[in-house]
Design a protein around this nucleic acid. Structure first.
Lengths: 219, 219
DNA sequence: GAAATTATTTAGATTTGTCTAACTTTTATT
DNA sequence: AATAAAAGTTAGACAAATCTAAATAATTTC
């Protein structure tokens, strides 16, 4: 299956929205791709014809098995290039996303598999997200700090799911990066904000919007 | 100046044809780009409007100073990626061209300059062609075996100017690669073919078409 | 459950890069 | 120099991906 850059971006965004539980709507996808709902409808028909998504008008969109496979291959390419940029070219965590966004569309199985070897076949990218293997198989997911039912106190940051510059810059400013150990001081039910503390720095509060995007594991 | 992939390919091909002395015609460029003369005429108008080429109808095409600069930047990207593929990902000489053809269109000054640093700022690519520096300055050219006025006997291959698979495979089959030392046995005026010998293997003859694309230096 | 609001789709237009077919200009031939 | 051939251009069409504006369906609200 040979996909255009536009088609690949749609598949990737649909995967991302599906991952975040909620159903994929025309408007939601348009927002995610910074385009208009009318354009999404057009592309939905095309992707349905290619059997990459299930789509009935007014009924929303979901990836087929083939679509999921395609998505995982695109994500593999994206995350491997991010590793390359950070590990080999000394880019910082925050600046790699945009460039990887372009590199991910270069389609050569051989290139990607050799790149993976060259990088030592990493299984997580610089943001802590798992890298699918050559067959599209994915390692296990981490937990969102806000969904942690066990109300764990001591946590380690393993990933950030939203890659917007705004969030990444905020986290950097706060000293939160991959591997950072943090302590949950308080969880406020009324707005789902969370008060946290890093080492011996003063505590501060993060909104649900932010905490939803921080993946953690108990430590 | 932000160029589309198509525009970049035109600029690169025009540069290549200009480098090979002859004037750049609509048909010649169409052949080089595997497209139709009508398409070339359309694009020529667009590139003229962007002041990258001089073009008057029926009068052929030539790069402006800006166009040359753009071409050298594209070539820099292409050749650096070729270095990466061969040096770091163990691709062979012959297979890198196509992939570099895609990678060259990723436009991030920072990416390319860091890639260059990572590779040790190479000045020639795996085919022996010089890599323009960040300012677009180019090292000195090598000589075509067929233009060697001095009629040198012992030569070293420093580059191959035509990157078509057909030629690269032919050269590999004959045992001609970068750095190969060869001895010119005879030059035939009537068809400009050249009889050469590599080490102690039997001599063979190469046509002008082939020899024109082999760059050499005396040894 | 009717009306209002929101979401989605359709129809028609636009841009980029390409094409074919017809036409024009230039170059080559005699 | 006239004509034939080759090279180049124009006009009109098309596919991909997008858009706006209008129409339709679904959902929410009262």
């Amino acid at each position: 299956m040979n996909l255009s850059v536009a088609e690949e971006n749609y598949i990737k965004s649909i995967y991302k929205l599906e991952e975040g539980q909620e159903s994929v709507t025309t408007t939601g996808l348009a927002y995610e791709l910074d385009t208009k709902p009318a354009s999404v409808t057009d592309m939905a028909k095309k992707l349905r014809d290619k059997k990459l998504i299930d789509y009935e008008k007014y009924q929303g969109i979901s990836l087929t098995a083939d679509g999921k496979k395609a998505a995982l291959h695109i994500i593999r390419r994206h995350r491997l290039w991010e590793c390359f940029l950070v590990d080999k070219l000394s880019f910082s965590w925050e600046e790699v996303h945009e460039i990887a966004e372009e590199l991910e569309h270069i389609r050569s199985e051989k290139l990607i598999n050799r790149l993976s070897d060259f990088l030592g076949n990493p299984t997580i990218d610089p943001h802590g997200d798992p890298i699918p293997d050559a067959q599209g198989r994915l390692g296990k997911q981490r937990t969102q700090i806000s969904l942690d039912q066990a109300r764990t106190k001591r946590l380690e940051v393993t990933a950030v799911s939203d890659k917007s510059n705004a969030l990444l810059e905020f986290l950097t400013a706060k000293g939160i990066r991959l591997g950072t150990h943090l302590e949950v001081i308080e969880r406020y039910e009324f707005d789902n904000s969370i008060e946290i503390k890093i080492r011996n720095q003063p505590a501060f509060t993060i909104s649900e919007q932010v905490s939803k995007n921080i993946m953690v594991r108990p430590v």
